[in-house]
Design a protein around this nucleic acid. Structure first.
Lengths: 227, 227
DNA sequence: TGTATTCACTTTGTATACAAAAAGAGAAGC
DNA sequence: GCTTCTCTTTTTGTATACAAAGTGAATACA
């Protein structure tokens, strides 16, 4: 059973860190060989990953890593703030002591990875942090939604963490500070504060993603071509 | 491939109509025999149903129909109106002509089943109607959430449709009227109206469910027992 | 009589072999 | 030279046999 779980965890990691590119095809036989599993359990792994939104299965055509096209990004920016705020509110109302402990541990890992300059580790630690807030909501209807949002959020943030400019370091520190405030708000069961912090946190992250997608333009040489 | 799809569709129907009770265990061998499938593809069916929230799988213990306990109901009433409104808004903005045609067809089926007094058919037709509105939203993050909400919504409504009192008939007619208004609002791309109608529709349905869960009390005989 | 332990049985999980469907290369026809 | 059809090859889907884990009943012991 453990070998299967390891396979699931590793494939998730590879999707989230873009080691497996969006749209990439996954071959059953090579994967089963790589993880030392037979095709039968490997196919069950793929079904489960598909159920969680990491990959999508097409009949008689195999598995491919979930794509991130323009339409998906539009949906993402439209949906994320609503769902994140709802989740934070519910997390503040329903979080258990054990979950708060786990959240603090995840935040510790995040700040630790912040020092290593390892973009993948930072993005994964951040993912784990927000995943725990999702479970805190104790809402089985919203958890699949936030899970899927986090998959794409982490994949997009990857690109930000990776090309880390000097001024970006401060932004990552601010992000970590938001996490601390959020832990505090949830511990005090203050739903209103948790939502406020979540909105700030979202605004920060959205700016980072947008700056990557629409960077400063290159020097404009079009005038010369018009002669 | 078709036999597998039939199996999935039938199991979904049986879950939604409470033919398979919440919490019921599902045996792989008897199911595979019943649907004329081998255990391997049947297990894939179960994985997929689990991914959509119809059942849940526990390691080394098999599959059981998703439970509907008190906690689930609380989450349901908390989450449904937010998600339904968001979905209706997006549906009005994004619906395609083909989808509107499909929605009208589903509404035709619903009104038709209304005459037959078949509670299961009514609930399933209603389910299908709202499922189409979900796909209209074209939002892959919210669709899993609304899917799960509809599973439990349909299962709870089942109980209402089943014990249909004389005055309930008018309520079902009003529900169908809401559907017509919603089709109209979506066709005219009026997101605001779609949300308003959805709120009315939700209020109506919630009352029906609540009246089933907390019915009028039986005649009060406690006074006599106190002597 | 109550409890604990062991053994048989049932059920889930995995591996391998086989069937079917899709993809691609090659040759024939226009 | 281009299209199209067919055959081969690769890849996905299914069935069956086997391994392992869990469950429950019966028996031995306190």
């Amino acid at each position: 059973m453990s070998k299967k779980d390891a396979c699931i965890a590793d494939l998730k990691t590879r999707v989230l860190t873009l080691a497996l590119a969006p749209g990439a095809m996954l071959d059953e036989v090579s994967l089963s060989a790589a993880y030392g599993l037979s095709r039968t359990p490997l196919r069950e792994v793929l079904q489960r990953l598909a159920g969680e939104g990491f990959i999508s299965l097409e009949a008689n055509k195999g598995a491919l890593v979930s794509a991130m096209d323009f339409s998906a990004m539009r949906q993402f920016f439209q949906t994320a703030p609503i769902v994140y705020c709802a989740i934070s509110r519910l997390a503040a109302e329903n979080a258990t002591m054990d979950q708060i402990t786990a959240l603090k541990a995840a935040q510790f890992d995040f700040t630790k990875s912040k020092g290593t300059q390892d973009a993948g580790a930072m993005a994964l630690a951040n993912h784990r942090f927000h995943e725990i807030i999702g479970t805190m909501s104790a809402n089985s209807y919203l958890i699949p939604a936030v899970g899927r949002l986090l998959i794409d959020h982490t994949r997009m943030s990857q690109r930000f963490y990776r090309g880390v400019a000097p001024q970006d370091s401060a932004r990552i520190d601010q992000s970590a500070h938001h996490h601390d405030l959020l832990i505090d708000a949830i511990s005090r069961r203050s739903a209103e504060e948790a939502v406020e912090i979540t909105l700030d946190h979202w605004a920060l992250s959205r700016e980072d993603i947008e700056r990557y997608v629409w960077p400063d333009p290159l020097p404009d040489d079009t005038a010369r071509q018009e002669t």
